[in-house]
Each structure stands twice: as structure tokens, then as C-alpha cells.
């Protein structure tokens, strides 16, 4: 986030206070851009009005893909390409293939899920982070408000943040 001085940051030092502050600030008609925290706070995303993530759907799809790929590979090699009689069993020996099908499903789900997670959050190795306050990853909870996207004046926003229990109000 560039240094255009259009962000007002409310810095909190307690997770419950920031959670309450979100609804308090919102009730005054101020639009909150995002809240940054050192650890997950349950209920914060719903308080901010973020939509529920669709990651579980993606995970399920990748799982299905893994299952299909594993079955396709085994069927192709064991039934079509080079069938062999092993212990007098059918070429299509489905019960024997359950372990590898399962492993394939898990493998695709895990890697597909994590890749989707990284893409959806724009995370990748070597990315330069947009740090609003260096203490976010330590012990501070920061509420970021974009002045340009709000009708209220900067002074009103600062007052609202202070009233909601912010220990510091900064401009970035």
C-alpha cells in the first residue's frame, strides 16, 4: 500500500477489543478496508462482512480429480496397456486399488487446496509484503480504513477509532 497518506490505522492491543471495535466503527457508517492480526480471531471475518470462503469446494473438486486420475492410471496400466494375471485375480482388481486411489485423492486435495489458497490470497515465494505496521505479526491488531473510500472526514474516523479503544491511531 503506497504512502499516499490515505490510510488511517487504528492500532489495538487486544483481540476482543478489536472484534468489538469492528462492529462499533461499522455502526458509525465507516467502511473498514481490512483488519490485520497476529493470529486468527474467530468471528472477525463475519464481523467485517467477508463472504465465506469457497476453499472447501475447491478441495472437494481436487479430491475428485485425484480419485479419477489414480483410477485412470491404474486402469490404464493394469487392465488395458499390459494386463497380467496376478494370483488368478481379475485384471480389474478394484479392492486392491483402494489404498492407492485413496492416497492419490489425498495428495491432489492437499496440493490443490494449498495452491488455491496461495493464489486466492496472492501469496507466493519472494513476494514483497505490504506491511502497514511492523507489529502486526507480533502483538498488535490493526484496523485499516481507506479515507478515499469513506464519506466521513479523517478527523471523524480518527475519533471513532479512538472511541472504540484503539491505543494508537496512525496515518499511512
Amino acid at each position: 500500500m503506497s504512502s499516499t497518506n490515505n490510510y488511517i490505522l487504528g492500532v489495538y492491543d487486544d483481540e476482543d477489543e478489536v472484534l468489538h471495535a469492528v462492529s462499533e466503527v461499522k455502526s458509525k457508517g465507516i467502511k473498514i478496508e481490512e483488519v490485520y492480526t497476529p493470529f486468527p480471531i474467530h468471528g472477525l471475518d463475519t464481523a467485517l462482512g467477508h463472504a465465506r470462503t469457497r476453499l472447501p469446494i475447491a478441495a472437494f473438486m481436487f479430491g475428485c480429480l485425484g480419485l479419477v486420475c489414480a483410477q485412470a492410471l491404474i486402469n490404464y496400466t493394469m487392465v488395458f496397456d499390459w494386463p497380467m494375471i496376478i494370483g488368478g485375480k481379475d485384471f480389474f482388481a478394484l479392492p486392491d486399488w483402494i489404498p492407492i486411489t485413496f492416497e492419490g485423492t489425498v495428495l491432489f486435495t492437499a496440493f490443490g487446496l494449498v495452491t488455491t489458497f496461495c493464489i486466492s490470497n496472492d501469496l507466493y515465494p519472494g513476494k514483497k509484503p505490504e506491511i502497514l505496521d511492523i507489529r502486526i505479526t507480533d502483538d498488535r491488531f490493526v484496523m485499516a480504513i481507506n479515507v478515499d473510500k469513506n464519506k466521513k472526514s479523517a478527523a471523524d474516523i480518527k475519533k471513532a477509532l479512538k472511541d472504540s479503544g484503539a491505543v494508537e491511531v496512525n496515518v499511512k
Partner: peptide
């Protein structure tokens, strides 16, 4: 990975960990 700890990322992160 350029982690910032935004509420949105954490919410997704929690889901990812659970899955």
C-alpha cells in the same frame, strides 16, 4: 510468501488447516 495477516487470509487459512 508475503504474508500480512489480514482477516480474510486468516479466515481462509483456518479453513485450509481444518481441511
Amino acid at each position: 510468501l508475503g504474508w500480512t495477516g489480514s482477516a480474510k487470509t486468516w479466515a481462509r487459512y483456518e479453513y485450509m488447516s481444518l481441511i
